[in-house]
Simulated assay, not measured.
Amino acid sequence: MAVVSAAPQRPIRLVIVDDDPLVRAGLRILVGGSPDIEVVAEAGDGEEAVTAAGAHWPDIILMDIRMPRVDGLMATRRIRSRPNAPQVIVLTTFDADDYVLEALRGGAAGFLLKDTPPREILEAVRAVAAGAATLSPTVIRRLIDHVADPQAGARRARARTRLATLTDREREVAVLVGHGRSNAEIAAGLGMGVPTVKGHVSRLLSKLDLNNRVQIALLVHDAELL
């Protein structure tokens, strides 16, 4: 009997966006040693990033924030507003609260600082390509502080109003997404199949008009359901 080998998995298509050519070169070298990730384009500002996203159909974009013409925050919003948009991981030296929250609310699936170890950057790319979210420990602390700030009461009320549209099961799934659980972990915890969990997550994104799991987690944090 002939043995039919499985087709090799397509590499993750990556676009690197940074206004510093040396940073782009360093990231390209970093990725060059990983056969499962392919750099398909580079961009020096947000305008070029939007163009590259449409021209090269990447899976992931590594996005800087401070850039000329169009910054990374605006570029992220524009890219993520399109159908079948690539995921965006913000990789920056700036960890101010406003940057973190604006990037995540704009649709970024991750936020990493440029002092993140190279191995963890590659792991983040793979994780986001697989449908997970990735946040540096510093960013997680920012989110905790965000929930505790003086404006938290108003955000809590708005978030709970939005979550009130969910079924009990959808709310359970949303809370577990907020805890950072994978689809497999949610399935095991709630006694359902992974495809069923994926269906619930898709309905959450549609009902709540959100882009990705990070935004579900933010909403659950705002509602103080964790």
Rank of each mutant, 00 (worst) to 15 (best):
R156Q: 13
A96G: 10
E172K: 08
I144C: 08
P11K: 00
P150I: 01
V201T: 12
A2G: 06
L112H: 04
E170I: 07
L166F: 08
R213A: 09
D168E: 14
V177C: 06
E224L: 08
A174I: 11
N212W: 09
K114H: 09
I37L: 03
L218A: 02
I140S: 10
K207M: 11
N212M: 02
V40T: 13
A85W: 09
A217T: 04
G189T: 10
R13D: 01
K114E: 13
R119V: 14
R156W: 05
G106Q: 02
L101P: 03
V4I: 12
K198H: 10
L219R: 00
L104R: 01
Y99M: 08
N183C: 14
K207C: 07
V17G: 02
E38C: 09
A52P: 03
I89M: 08
W57A: 12
R28G: 14
A130F: 06
A108S: 05
M74L: 13
E224G: 12
T92V: 02
A157Y: 00
L218G: 01
A25D: 05
S182C: 07
G46E: 12
R160T: 12
I140L: 14
I29Q: 08
A129Y: 00
R10F: 09
A108Q: 07
I186R: 02
D98F: 06
A96V: 09
I12R: 09
G46C: 05
N211F: 15
S81F: 04
L163T: 04
T76D: 12
V177E: 04
A55S: 12
S5N: 11
A53G: 06
A157F: 08
L91E: 10
K207E: 11
L163S: 07
E48D: 11
V197W: 04
H200K: 07
D18G: 00
L135Y: 05
I121W: 07
Q87P: 00
T165K: 14
R169H: 11
T165M: 13
V31P: 07
D71F: 02
L73A: 03
F111Q: 01
G199W: 09
L190G: 04
G107I: 03
P117S: 09
T165N: 11
L176T: 10
L22P: 01
R13Y: 04
R13S: 04
V40D: 13
R158K: 15
A52R: 15
D45Q: 06
T76W: 15
I186M: 12
R28K: 13
I37S: 10
R80C: 02
V31F: 01
P137F: 15
L208A: 00
V128Q: 08
T51A: 15
I144P: 02
M63V: 01
L210K: 00
V17Q: 08
G44I: 04
R142N: 11
D115Q: 11
V194L: 13
L226I: 08
A157Q: 13
V3L: 14
L208D: 05
L208I: 05
L219V: 06
L104T: 01
A217G: 12
R77D: 05
L205V: 03
A75S: 02
A103K: 02
I121G: 03
P86R: 04
G46A: 03
R10Q: 14
